[in-house]
């Protein structure tokens, strides 16, 4: 297995984990209650996981452009376009998770509305992350890095 193939696999697994992780603060923040220590950890780890999934995607991006994309564009054009769709959505997932995470962590005790808004941001990020992970799985099944 090549390093790129391994990183691609790690990226995919982190993406799927991120979907589940994003749902946790989306559910726990929905009432806008002040943060417990456990919820602070959950928010911090979720944000870190999403950032890590995005970062591993960026590390294999050049390799993908060089080794996978040309073949995919020529043989499976529609699937190659789905990759472009996936990368646009992934950016929104990262920014929504970062914004919601910081907003929830710094909000004062009486800022219930801000924490409820952060919950909504997490819920939207989870939905978009699910689409991203599904597209990624499909694209890799059609044409990923060579073994």
């Amino acid at each position: 297995m090549t390093v790129l193939r391994l990183l691609e696999s790690i990226h995919g697994h982190l993406g799927v984990l991120a979907v589940a992780a994003l749902l946790h603060p989306a559910i726990l923040l929905r009432r806008g209650r002040p943060l417990s220590r456990g919820l602070r950890w959950s928010i911090g780890l979720t944000t870190a996981l999403v950032a890590l999934a995005f970062a591993t995607g960026l590390t294999i991006y050049d390799g993908y452009r060089e080794h996978v994309r040309p073949q995919l564009l020529l043989e499976h054009y529609d699937t190659a376009l789905l990759f472009e769709t996936k990368e646009h959505i992934a950016w929104a997932v990262l920014t929504l998770a970062l914004g919601a995470g910081v907003a929830a962590l710094v909000s004062p005790r009486d800022a219930k509305a801000i924490r409820q808004a952060a919950a909504a941001f997490y819920a939207v990020a989870a939905l978009l992350c699910l689409v991203t992970a599904s597209l990624g799985t499909w694209i890799t099944a059609v044409g990923g890095f060579p073994q």
């Binding site: 914004g99 919601a100 910081v102 907003a103 710094v106 004062p108 801000i114 808004a117």
Partner: peptide, 10 residues
Amino acid sequence: WAVAALAFAV
């Protein structure tokens, strides 16, 4: 700062 983070996210 919380509102700023939400503004960034949008």
